[in-house]
Design a binder for these strands. Structure first.
Lengths: 121, 121
DNA sequence: AATTAATTACTTACTTTTTTGTCATCACAC
DNA sequence: GTGTGATGACAAAAAAGTAAGTAATTAATT
């Protein structure tokens, strides 16, 4: 029997959730969806509040889960670039939907909102 | 300034996430989306592994956030019914997407999957 | 008919687990 | 000295789980 992390699923939603659960994951994915590729520090600066350690963790999990890819740009002073894989891209309708839903919610309820295309969070 | 939980948002995705973050929330919403209305014990039995305490908590938060409604069917032996509010329904494209994405993932990777229309998890 | 058992929707006190965060440190280059 | 992308020990906080108990009623058993 072929299983995903030793578990036989009965609910497909539960399967999807497995890939996006984590405080920063969806924000990271949305960021990469928006900017196509980002370095570690760009991501860090775009996600106010993330600790570097946690960002590294989430990036590693996303990479292991094949949602994002990691490309080394230079070795000596290590420079990397993160981007969405095909699988990561296949979930983009979700990022777009959540973004639209959030905007609609804020507008409907007259809640102040600072639009900053450089900040994600 | 009108704010949402004392915070000025810069990212709409972050706004949406606020309503669905919680181990069981999306599953509860998906369940209600699928079945339209459910009692406390129906939800409990459909979500293998939830503790009643946690289910109560998540339901309360979803209700406070106006994602679900709670209707009392009888007072003496308390009987209630949960259902999606308009706001909860407005997020249904998301539940559907996650469900489809999960199925596609499982099929693409040849992972075994028990289809049980009565179990959500 | 009387007693017991089961069900419903929770609630409470407490423990455990999981997840996050803090802070220091690293090698390397400019 | 600054910036790059990390890693590790440890602490704190958040989330989730365990187990028991509640009131009210219906169902089952004796």
């Amino acid at each position: 029997m072929i299983t995903l992390h030793d578990k036989v699923y009965t609910c497909p939603v539960d399967v999807s959730l497995r890939f996006i659960s984590g405080k920063w994951k969806i924000l990271i994915l949305f960021n990469l969806f928006h900017f196509e590729k980002r370095s570690f520090s760009e991501l860090r600066d775009n996600l106010p509040g993330v600790a570097e350690k946690v960002l590294t963790q989430q990036l590693k999990e996303l990479e292991k889960d094949n949602m994002i890819g990691r490309r080394i740009l230079s070795e000596k002073p290590l420079r990397v670039e993160y981007f969405l894989t095909e699988q990561g891209i296949s979930m983009s309708p979700m990022y777009e939907f959540l973004s639209k839903w959030g905007i609609a919610y804020l507008e409907k309820n007259g809640i102040d909102y600072i639009q900053d295309q450089h900040l994600y969070k």
